[in-house]
Design a protein around this nucleic acid. Structure first.
Length: 286
DNA sequence: ATAGGCGCCTGCTGGC
DNA sequence: TGCCAGCAGGCGCCTA
């Protein structure tokens, strides 16, 4: 579920609740998440102070005063919330951290259990993890040359490229489709067939779309809620995602849905056509 | 090395 | 009403 805007919203919601809070205790459920929870972690976490709540791609990172880092991934249905300790537990709650303010608990809930929670021993171990997985740059400060070069080097279609976390961190299925629409590029176009002007357009479109979505606290289709339990609103502004058969906001043509990179892909067949050589030549002059 | 497909889980919807 | 197929904000592992 959550892509960058949703994860960013969780981080912003949680930060004021968690910064400088001491973890008093940790209770872990028995059902496994994608990475198995180590029993020893509960002991290591006890008494640690959360220094900050940050984000890298779709990962939530909490550096602790012990030097450890507590790292979460939301998978498809993960929820990480600060909730009043008195509130009853929802089903599928896998981890509960009690805090020294006594009123709120940090709870991790995940229906499908594609999410994960990991404790890294020190900043170097965390850095090593991101390096090994070759996590790409944040979408807001991508070097234009890097972007053009990487796109030009791949045979994959643009949709598939956008979903690759090694190319750019944080984009998922919704924002890949919305970004391609914003850039007026066909999701099926190969990276290698994308001239520099179009690569630049796509790079900017990704940043614009993600910023808009963050402003709306992300998108809530079914499960997603932010760190305070509030839903997002960006689903109200989708131009193509989930709008199969509905009119394109620009040209009223029906939005089409195809399967690409194993994911359902939405686009306007008229606005997102492969550009002719003349059009490309014109935009080069501009 | 690169690209595509499948499996991991649970829950919901729509068609018969 | 019940059943079954298909679908879902992700990612890691396997294959060719």
């Amino acid at each position: 579920m959550p892509e960058l805007p949703e994860v960013e919203t969780i981080v912003r919601d949680l930060r004021p609740h968690l910064t400088d809070r001491r973890i008093e205790s940790v209770r872990a459920g028995r059902r496994p998440l994608r990475r198995r929870w180590q029993k020893a972690w509960a002991t290591q976490l006890q008494g640690s102070v959360i220094l900050d709540v940050t984000r890298r791609g779709k990962w939530i990172v909490m550096p602790l005063d012990s030097g450890h880092s507590l790292v979460f991934h939301m998978g498809m249905t993960g929820q990480l919330r600060a909730i009043a300790a008195a509130e009853p537990h929802d089903s599928h709650t896998h981890l509960v951290f009690t805090l020294d303010d006594g009123t709120n608990e940090l709870r991790f809930r995940d229906i499908r259990r594609f999410g994960s929670v990991t404790l890294f021993a020190d900043p170097a171990a965390l850095e090593e993890f991101f390096t090994q997985s070759r996590l790409g740059p944040e979408p807001f400060d991508i070097d234009p040359t890097y972007w053009r070069t990487r796109l030009a080097a791949t045979q994959r279609c643009l949709k598939s490229a956008l979903l690759d976390q090694q190319l750019v961190a944080g984009v998922g299925n919704i924002y890949a489709d919305e970004s391609l629409y914003e850039a007026r590029l066909p999701p099926t176009q190969r990276g290698t067939d994308t001239p520099r002007g179009e690569a630049d357009r796509l790079r900017r479109a990704v940043a614009v779309v993600l910023r808009r979505a963050i402003d709306q606290r992300g998108s809530s289709i079914r499960n997603y809620v932010g760190g305070s339990g509030l839903k997002g609103q960006y689903q109200e502004e989708f131009r193509v995602y989930g709008r199969t058969g509905k009119p394109c906001p620009r040209c009223r043509t029906g939005i089409e849905r195809i399967r690409l990179a194993g994911r359902s892909t939405h686009f306007c067949p008229k606005c997102q056509k492969v550009e002719s050589e003349e059009t490309r030549a014109k935009s080069r002059k501009r």
